[in-house]
Simulated assay, not measured.
Amino acid sequence: MKQNKQRDGFMDVYLVGGAVRDELLGRPVTERDWVVTGATPQEMLSKGYEQVGKDFPVFLHPKTKEEYALARTERKSGSGYTGFVCYAAPDVTLEQDLIRRDLTVNAIARDKDGNLIDPYYGVKDIESRTLRHVSEAFSEDPLRVFRVARFAARYAYLGFTVADETASLMRSMADSGELAHLTAERVWKETIRALGEMNPEVYFQVLENAGALGFWFLELIPSRVNSDLRLQRAAAAQCSDDIRWALLFADVSPEQTEKLCERIKAPNKYTGLALLISRFSKNFTASNQAEDWLALCNQCDAWRKPERFTDFITACTLIAAPSETGSALATALNEAVSKAGKLSAKAFVEQGLRGPQIGEAMDQARMEIIAEYLN
């Protein structure tokens, strides 16, 4: 395609990446990134741009605050996703900048007149619904294995799949052991973003097909099929990402759950709910009596953390398969916990009860409230 340019005084400016991709797909564009060729950092600063990049020159537009990055090349210099030497200078071309990107669908540029610059056939891959790596340099950044899996989860509903040659390259990267050099924070960030997509199960499917679950998600491998179905239900119900994360651990032991959450540095909110599911989700059955529900509430610390218990109950209904009965049961339990959680020990002290008697009396009162709501 003809390479037209948006002139901004001394420099050539192109809209790149996700904004171009999503415009072509008819999806909402939430942020726009720009690449600048033919400019130096000093020239950008003289135009009022604010430099924010540490590893390479990235600037904020003085009015829109959108990111403008100088065109750059990268050379592998070490392990992991940080082991690169970047070169940004006026002689770096747009094509050289685009070739360092991960996928062809992310390597399309557009000028102000809407003309596309597509040297690596990203438009063709958008039309064929294919996620394909731009070049062999893809293998230099292990984080891209997780990024491709996340993109697959995001665009699965449009029919996108990973190209065979890209899947093969991802398997080679996983086999090399490079994924172990990633930081937990970066893997967690990709994972939690993927869990929020319309098809979160695809993220783990792609990683499994690439042999990439072994280091970070080893404990999830035996229960992959069941967790796929549960994630589909959670996405359909538009559940929060902490519930989606917890559903992965319904068939995982508490010890393994704790180990995985610690390895990936999952925040306490996510770890706590995952452990509840791992430990107690099998105790959630429609045949339970009031005393069973009381025991479960005590185990889950429902009285002090009713919001977390609500998430636990929601997750349990998804594990057992959503139904009108399950939904009604969940509603009854949540209402019972809300009411029973307001009971105060003070009232029982005023009745003359002491020590263990207070706890026993509160349990009895709570069980009666649960029975009332269940009936």
Score class of each variant (00 low, 15 high):
Val105Lys: 00
Gly83Val: 08
Ala89Val: 12
Ile117His: 09
Ala109Phe: 01
Tyr120Arg: 02
Ala109Asp: 00
His61Ser: 11
Tyr121Arg: 09
Val36Ala: 02
Gly38Ser: 05
Pro62Phe: 09
Val36Leu: 03
Ile108Glu: 03
Thr64Glu: 14
Val52Thr: 13
Ala39His: 01
Val92Arg: 06
Thr93Glu: 05
Ala88Ile: 10
Glu95Asn: 04
Asp91Gln: 12
Asp97Glu: 04
Gly122Cys: 10
Lys124Asn: 13
Gly83Ser: 04
Phe56Met: 09
Thr64Gln: 07
Gly78Phe: 09
Thr93Asp: 06
Tyr87Cys: 12
Ala109Lys: 01
Val92Phe: 04
Val85Ile: 13
Lys112Leu: 15
Leu98Ala: 02
Ser77Cys: 15
Gly53Ser: 06
Thr104Pro: 01
Met44Ala: 07
Thr82Val: 12
Ala39Gln: 03
Thr37Gln: 03
Gln51Asn: 09
Val92Pro: 05
Pro41Cys: 12
Ala88Gly: 11
Arg100Trp: 01
Lys65Asp: 12
Ala71Glu: 02
Tyr121Lys: 11
Glu43Asn: 14
Asp55Met: 11
Ile117Tyr: 07
Glu95Asp: 09
Ala71Met: 04
Ile108Tyr: 01
Thr93Phe: 01
Val35Pro: 03
Ala109Met: 00
Ala107Ser: 05
Thr37Met: 01
Asp113Gln: 12
Ala89Cys: 11
Ile117Val: 15
Thr104Arg: 05
Val58Asp: 10
Val85Ser: 09
Gly48Asn: 06
Ala71Leu: 01
Leu60Pro: 08
Lys47Gly: 15
Gly114His: 13
Tyr68Thr: 10
Ala39Lys: 01
Glu66Gln: 12
Gly38Ile: 04
Phe84Pro: 13
Thr82Ser: 10
Asn115Pro: 12
Phe59Gly: 08
Glu50Cys: 13
Gly38Leu: 05
Tyr68Val: 08
Thr37Phe: 02
Ala39Ile: 02
Val123Trp: 08
Thr37Arg: 00
Lys76Tyr: 11
Leu70Thr: 08
Met44Asp: 05
Leu94Ile: 10
Thr64Gly: 07
Cys86Pro: 13
Leu98His: 01
Tyr81Phe: 15
Trp34Cys: 08
Trp34Tyr: 15
Leu60Trp: 07
Gly80Trp: 02
Thr64Val: 12
Phe84Glu: 13
Pro41Ile: 07
Glu67Asp: 09
Gly53Ile: 10
Arg32Tyr: 05
Asp125Ile: 09
Glu95Val: 08
Gly53Arg: 07
Val35Trp: 00
Ser77Val: 15
His61Pro: 14
Gln96Ser: 10
Ser79Lys: 10
Leu45Ser: 11
Gly80Pro: 04
Gly78Arg: 10
Asp125His: 12
Leu60His: 11
Val36Ser: 03
Thr104Phe: 00
Ser46Trp: 04
Asp91Thr: 14
Asp102Lys: 00
Gly122Asn: 06
Thr82Tyr: 09
Tyr81His: 15
Arg32Met: 08
Pro57Thr: 06
Leu70Ile: 07
Lys112Asp: 15
Pro90Ile: 10
